[in-house]
Amino acid sequence: MAMRRGGLTVVGAAAGVLALGTAGTAWAGNADLEMHGSAVLVGDLVEVGVTPRNHGPDTVTGASVRLTSSAALADTQHLPGGCARTGDREVVCDTGPLAVEVPGERLVVPVRLRDRPEEMTLKVDVVWGGGAVDQDRTNDEQRVLVLATGDPYAF
């Protein structure tokens, strides 16, 4: 199921899988998607910056990235358009279109945590690739340990 937020479509992992298997869905080509960025933890706020990239060979009309925290999220979130909370520790965001070998629009996602952890682990992974077949799934997931130092930790 797709959700509309801020004019963008956010697609969860299950919806992406269903869309791929739907009769009449056009083949969207091949793409190699990856996400890189950084995370900063201060108090109960972790600010995540993600830059999506498509190594091709085909363009992608849109993809979704999932941010999974080892720390529980606060009940109230003020997420940017195109992002939605999908679980106790998860947020999914739409990347928008991704051209080949051109960095996508940088996503900046402030996420409130329930507590003030001294550290947390953040997993960033591609959960839907716009219907394209990703021939190299080895770069679809990144993990980073983020300490509550106010310093950026890269992934």
Rank of each mutant, 00 (worst) to 15 (best):
R4S: 13
R5L: 07
L8E: 13
V11L: 12
G12A: 12
G12R: 03
A13K: 04
A13P: 08
A14Q: 15
A15L: 07
A15Y: 02
A19S: 13
A19D: 14
G24L: 14
G24D: 14
T25N: 12
T25G: 07
A26W: 14
A31V: 05
M35T: 06
H36W: 02
S38N: 11
L41R: 00
G43E: 08
D44H: 11
D44F: 02
E47W: 03
V50R: 01
V50K: 00
P52H: 08
N54I: 10
N54P: 06
G56C: 11
P57D: 13
T59P: 15
V60E: 09
T61S: 14
G62A: 12
V65R: 05
L67G: 04
S70K: 03
A71R: 03
D75V: 02
T76K: 12
Q77K: 04
R85W: 06
R85Y: 11
V92W: 03
D94V: 03
G96Y: 01
P97Q: 05
A99I: 05
E101W: 02
P103N: 08
L107D: 12
V108C: 09
V108D: 14
V109F: 01
V109W: 00
V111S: 03
R112C: 02
R114H: 11
D115N: 07
R116P: 02
R116F: 01
E118I: 00
E119L: 04
M120T: 10
T121A: 08
T121Y: 03
K123I: 11
K123Y: 08
V126D: 10
V127G: 05
W128H: 12
W128C: 02
W128R: 08
V133C: 09
D136F: 12
D136I: 09
R137S: 11
R137K: 12
R137M: 08
R137Q: 13
T138E: 11
T138S: 11
N139W: 06
D140L: 13
D140H: 05
E141V: 10
R143P: 01
L145T: 14
G150K: 07
D151M: 07
Y153K: 00
A154M: 10
F155Y: 15
